[in-house]
Design a binder for these strands. Structure first.
Length: 721
DNA sequence: CGTCGTCTTATTTTT
DNA sequence: TAAGACGACG
């Protein structure tokens, strides 16, 4: 028997070897899901049931796709080429490029980012006479996205899907107009990639048949996070041979806000009659207390498919059941950050690798106090999934230049860089260009005789530039073209002159863009890569603490996981409590479950009594999730311990906590306590200025002598030394 | 047309 | 608080 099969446990093996017919693998956290998927893929190939190009494997993130590709390559003993392996969006794009005409697009269509989308939508809303203050374009955009998530083209949107009160009942008409504009500028937004692809399969049986011939096996990762279009797309592709294997965990469904429908996984058996279900329940990752905590927490959700994780970690028994989950109450977020920093230091001293430590937060703004603390103590860290590489302004600018060079009709790209760097083509010039372009029915870059004087010259110079860059692109390739653009457009000069601290980083980013560009044969391929895949992996290497949102942590694991900010109103989030009812609360709980199950050996949950909120402070109660953890797997400690106990017994008035400035008497205010002991003559510590001596005070301000000089600052910025 | 200052407003989660 | 929008001035 093949040794790759021998390495699996019986349930995993069943999941790998059940090749014919629909199969749902319910894989709990840490049960070897990725291993099953990749082994299954390799098994299909090694048993010669299909060629690599006949298997379609879909993941949610690029990271997962990359990891799968690497693992498969390792199992096959060579690079895995020609696979249909990627994210839903990447595969959708690939499909759409092949059949662009069927969606009313040219094959070289652009993929828009959110800026472009709004720039397209805004004027349409204005034309409809909508007040953009009362109806934010983002809100309508979100509505359109949700429709796309559900596979609804404008024609398919029924009055039942529409809300007559929203944007004065214009939503559907604006959606149709928006789609027309997209086609007019030969562009697709993110949602279109799957919507168009699915629509093509629905409307063109010949194309569908082609894919049925082409693709024999389908593998789907994170099935619990698929939305309706993704489901429709998969079902269409799978309907001929029905060899579809979906792997997922309903307890880890955390993307409903993005249109994901847990129902997809819950009704798999009805969708694919005769489907088999395999449950993976042996958890190889976490200690018994962590699993007990996670299990107890998630048991408060209803409507689960039901799985019981059992500890199977090698040596789990030998480690005396492992450390209990720590729950620590603290006074405020700064203290929380200090606690985490101290513990990280202690772990480091004890020989733990920083790469095995993660801080997982609910919302991205929470990362700040931790970053400040880690910087102050010189603990290397990385923020995972923050600003993506492609989302940085300079990258978008450079890409817009490339897009406008490659596609003279790409008005959105052209508009973006028209006056970047400043060349005297401001709002007024743009307005005139737009009017003329509209009247003459030509792209912006083809407008003539719309401007006069200086602006005219600047515009001609820019057009001459593009003509030159197009020539360079054709003759010398994209890398030299990019270099010419940056030099000749004045963009490089603009950055060099920029004395702000970010400027050097921006220049670095552009160099990185050039390096990435060099790896692509065509500019078209590169542009797709950039909008679909490109990630920010600087800092990826090295021994660093990982700092990220809970959402970004799915699929990862660490020895030690810090879970700060478990307070009602923050986690579960206020909006989940106010809107969406039980469903949202359950999703928050699944998020907590995901967080806990990232930990192999240690999980440290913390909550604070006072959290920074805009400029002021708000008191907060411990998260209700904390009381859902089993007492015997948890150890409580911390300076806010008493408050926690009182708070948990108090009536549930949580909804008011964040929206009103009420201070609950049972929660001590960290400010008052801190402010008192700092008197004239006291030694204090400041994050930036270091140690100093207080020489005076007035109201809430202190006068402090630092080595670098005397400062007047808010007492809240210094700590007693 | 561009710059500077004031004012507002926002904090979920992202392919 | 802090970043972004917007309006008044040069």
């Amino acid at each position: 028997m093949s040794d790759y099969l021998a390495r699996l446990n019986p349930e995993q093996r069943l999941a790998v070897e059940t090749l014919d017919g629909p199969l749902l693998v319910l894989a709990g956290a840490g049960t070897g899901k990725t291993r099953v998927l990749t082994t299954r893929f390799a098994h299909i190939l090694l048993t010669k049931r299909a060629w690599p190009s006949q298997v379609l494997a879909v993941t949610f993130t690029n990271k997962a796709a990359r990891e799968m590709r690497e693992r498969i390559a390792a199992m096959l003993g060579g690079p895995a080429e020609g696979l249909w392996l990627g994210t839903f969006h990447a595969l959708g794009a690939r499909m759409l490029r092949r059949h662009a005409a069927l969606a009313g697009l040219e094959p070289g269509f652009s993929i828009l980012d959110t800026d472009d989308q709004l720039r397209l939508l805004k004027p349409l809303m204005q034309e409809a006479g909508l007040d953009l203050h009362r109806f934010p374009p983002q809100a309508l955009m979100a509505r359109i996205q949700r429709w796309k998530d559900r596979g609804l083209t404008p024609a398919r949107v029924t009055p039942a899907d529409d809300d007559p009160d929203f944007v004065q009942g214009h939503a559907r008409a604006l959606y149709a107009a928006y789609q027309q504009r997209l086609a007019a500028v030969n562009a697709a937004d993110f949602g279109d990639l799957l919507l168009h692809a699915t629509e093509i399969l629905r409307n063109h049986p010949d194309v569908l048949a082609e894919y049925h011939r082409l693709i024999r096996y389908i593998l789907v990762d994170e099935y619990q996070d698929t939305n309706l279009v993704q489901y429709l797309w998969l079902r269409l592709l799978a309907q001929a041979h029905r060899n579809i294997c979906c792997v997922g965990d309903d307890d880890q469904s955390i993307y409903s806000w993005r249109g994901a429908e847990v129902e997809n996984i819950l009704r798999f058996e009805q969708d694919f009659p005769g489907a088999r279900i395999v449950r993976l329940e042996a958890n190889y990752r976490s200690t018994a207390p962590i699993l007990a905590a996670a299990a107890s927490l998630i048991s408060h959700n209803e409507g689960r498919l039901g799985k019981t994780l059992r500890p199977a970690r090698p040596g789990a028994e030998g480690e005396a059941d492992g450390e209990k989950v720590s729950v620590i109450g603290l006074h405020d977020s700064d203290e929380e950050a200090r606690m985490v920093g101290l513990r990280i230091e202690a772990l480091r001293t004890a020989g733990h690798s920083l790469a095995e430590i993660a801080i997982l937060v609910r919302a991205s703004f929470q990362t700040r106090p931790f970053e400040e603390r880690l910087i102050a103590w010189a603990i290397p860290y990385r923020v995972v999934g923050g600003l993506r590489f492609y989302e940085r302004a300079e990258i978008r600018d450079a890409v817009a230049y490339l897009r406008a060079t490659l596609r003279p009709g790409d008005d959105l790209a052209f508009e973006r860089i028209l006056n970047v760097p400043k060349r005297g083509l401001g709002d007024a010039a743009l307005r005139r260009l737009r009017e003329k372009a509209r009247a003459d029915e030509v792209p912006l870059a083809a407008v003539t005789d719309a401007l006069a004087g200086r602006t005219k010259e600047a515009f001609s110079a820019l057009l001459a530039g593009f003509a030159r860059w197009r020539e360079i692109l054709r003759r010398d390739g994209s890398v030299l073209c990019l270099r010419a653009i940056l030099e000749e457009s004045g963009y490089a000069e603009m950055l060099e002159k920029d004395r702000s601290p970010e400027a050097p980083g921006r220049i670095e980013n552009l160099k990185e863009l050039g390096r990435a560009l060099a790896e692509f044969e065509t500019l078209e391929g590169f542009l797709d890569h950039v909008s679909l895949v490109m990630e920010n992996d600087e800092n990826a290497a090295g021994d660093r603490v990982s700092l990220m949102t809970l959402h970004a942590a799915k699929g990862l694991e660490f020895d030690t996981v810090f879970l700060p900010g478990w307070e009602d109103g923050l986690f579960p989030h206020q909006r989940a409590l106010e809107e969406g009812g039980t469903k949202s609360l359950e999703e928050e709980r699944r998020l907590a479950y995901v967080g806990l199950t990232r930990a192999r050996s240690r999980a440290i949950v913390s909550h604070v009594a006072n959290r920074r909120f805009y400029s002021g402070w708000q008191s907060a109660f411990p998260s209700r999730f904390i009381s859902e953890l089993p007492e015997d797997a948890v150890e409580h400690s911390g300076s806010a311990l008493l408050e926690r106990e009182t708070a948990l017994k108090s009536p549930p008035v949580f909804a008011n906590v964040f929206s009103s400035p009420v201070r609950f008497p049972l929660v001590r205010d960290a400010r008052e306590e801190r402010a008192a002991p700092i008197a004239v003559g006291a030694r204090v510590f400041h994050q930036k200025f270091g140690y100093g001596t207080v020489t005076g005070s007035e109201a809430d301000r202190l006068v402090v002598d630092f080595e670098s000089g005397t400062k007047r600052l808010l007492s809240s910025f210094v700590d007693p030394a």
